[in-house]
Amino acid sequence: MKKSSYIFTICVLVIILSEYSHVCQSIRCNPQDKKVLLQIKQHFGNAYHFASWDPDTDCCSWYIVKCDRTTNRISTFNLITADISGQIPDTIGDLPYLQSLTFHKISNLTGTIPRSITNLKKLTSLTISWTNVSGPIPSFLGQLKNLTFLDLSFNNFSDSIPPTLADLRNLLGLRLDRNKLSGSIPESFGNLTPSLQYLYLSHNQLSGTIPRGWGELPFILMELQRNRLEGDISFLFGKNKSIQVVDFSRNLLEFDFSNLQFPDDLGTLDLNHNKIYGSLAEDLVNLDRLFLNVSYNRLCGKIPVGGQLQELDYTSYFHNRCLCGAPLPECK
């Protein structure tokens, strides 16, 4: 072989090997992960939302999913506003490197949460919201020990809240609002993780009292409106608290409001439609950015002067036993 031909052959081989190496490097998808994803696609009838899921392409480039840059395993599965029907497939539990799993705004998603989800030991965020998934909230969700965020809002979950959710010791946020949950808040919830800052339990049918242990937790936001909760929540307040948003409106709470104190950062306090009595706490005048609604209670006395209290609409105060003073009529 002539030297020039030899050199040419070597150059061609180098180019071919280089291209082959580039292709190999660009295909990141784990074969087992791809197999599971294609099973999920088939489970949902090869719906248009999975059009990019071509078995001849790298699954790390597909819509809905993402791969971890280090492991090249599927770490994110976010199915949002999809025109699909059916139940959450059992095979979702065969993606062991998942860290974030979302099914959001899928009205034709039905059935229950599959037990196979407990195989997802690395899961930190689980969202199943705005769907028609129903049944009791499974107690086995308490096995997902790495969860920092659990959102099961706007579904058709019924029955009581499983006490095992208190086993999720890394939670920062918990949303169970807008379901059909009933019964009392579990006793175990009095010992929720001290990292929990955001709690949404509103628009359910919960009854009984709230756990005393919540007075020791660093909540920033609590929304429990439109339930049937009773008793005293005054222990949630105080100068040393971190709470910024509190909504317990439309419950059956009954306690003396007169001498409460509030953290400086409290921005929303909505307690309308309860059975709260006493006078308005003087400490409210120290809150500069307060939205307050205490209408439809049993409060009496003059509205303290100062802060934002006179700038609020009269509807923030009306339908109480004998509150008076601006913005309500003058006291007699």
Rank of each mutant, 00 (worst) to 15 (best):
S75Y: 04
W62T: 11
N78E: 14
G86M: 06
N297W: 05
I10C: 12
D33S: 09
V294L: 03
G190K: 00
I40H: 00
N30V: 07
Y198R: 07
Y6K: 14
R169W: 05
N170T: 04
S139L: 07
S100Y: 10
C324N: 05
K239H: 14
V14Q: 13
T164W: 02
N179S: 03
M1P: 06
T118G: 03
Q32R: 11
P31K: 14
K302S: 13
L171C: 01
L328T: 00
Q39W: 03
K35I: 07
Y200T: 10
F77V: 02
S61L: 13
P186S: 03
I276R: 01
D94S: 13
C300I: 14
F154K: 10
C24A: 13
I15T: 14
N297P: 00
F77L: 11
C322S: 15
D232S: 04
D265L: 09
G267M: 12
P31Q: 13
T9L: 13
H273E: 10
P329D: 13
G215F: 05
T112W: 06
T124A: 06
G208L: 00
H319R: 12
G325M: 05
T112F: 10
S316M: 06
P163F: 04
H104R: 15
P329Q: 11
G267K: 12
C11W: 01
K41S: 11
T124D: 09
Q42Y: 04
G208T: 00
V14I: 15
V12T: 07
N179P: 05
S129D: 13
H49S: 15
G306E: 09
N240I: 09
K2E: 12
I15K: 05
